[in-house]
Amino acid sequence: MNKIKFIISIIFFLFVASNILAASINKNELFKNIRCLVCQGQSIADSNSDFARTVKLVINDQIKDGKTEKEIYKFLVEKYGEWIVYNPPLNKYNFILWFFPYFILIIGGFLIYILSKKKDSA
């Protein structure tokens, strides 16, 4: 019993030790999540267009002003519509998008559970 406790505590320690993390806005990640409206399926991080440059400038300013990632997304959605963010906000239009995959995951797990619970007769 002691041995198991020991193992568990090692696992726990190693995991927690690896998790003292500092969250900050990753500018490049943010740029990758914003669509360049004048391009074909590119984000502003990937585009050299005038529009992409301007939006990057504006976002840089907003980060300097201490705005959070969420506030920046909200600002852009207000100005350009939801099309501009690759990260669809959770609202009445998009809840199926966000929940359906998990629904499938649960249903699938449930099906396997039912199928495998019966003892093999063969």
Partner: peptide, 8 residues
């Protein structure tokens, strides 16, 4: 700079 245009 074009920055204001984003606001519109």
């Amino acid at each position: 700079t074009g920055k204001q245009s984003v606001n519109f």
